[in-house]
């Protein structure tokens, strides 16, 4: 149970960073923390202590296999969600670089073309 709570704490840290920090780079890093906390949570759902690879061989006892094998589905799903996170992070970095070109700063407070 403790590991899930730690994941949620990590989630809260990421959310705090996104809400409070004023620097574009720090916001991107906070987003990374947030993303990985969710991924970590998801992958821990499929984790089993001393688990075996989820490949059923011939002559293996089915009940024992189910009890021992790790859940492969979260691993596949987390791989997908990491790719999505990668795409968003690259896009964020690209736009942050363009914003730095325009304003010469990473400070959100100095980007005031839009209001409200």
């Amino acid at each position: 149970m403790l590991i899930y709570v730690l994941c949620i704490i990590l989630f809260a840290i990421g959310l705090y960073g996104i809400v409070v920090k004023k620097n574009l780079v720090k916001i991107i890093i906070s987003f990374g923390i947030l993303d990985y906390s969710v991924n970590l949570f998801f992958i821990l759902l499929g984790y089993k202590r001393d688990g075996i690879a989820p490949i059923m061989m011939k002559g293996q006892d089915k009940a024992q296999f189910v009890a021992q094998a790790v859940d492969p589905l979260p691993q596949a799903l987390v791989l997908t969600s990491i790719v999505i996170g990668l795409g968003i992070t690259i896009l964020m970095v690209a736009i942050a670089i363009r914003l730095y070109d325009k304003y010469g700063t990473f400070d959100v407070m100095k980007m005031r073309k839009l209001k409200g």
Binding site: I18, I27, I88, M92, I95, L99, L114
Partner: peptide
Amino acid sequence: LEASFKYMV
């Protein structure tokens, strides 16, 4: 760019 960054986050 600014709007997109805000929207993206």
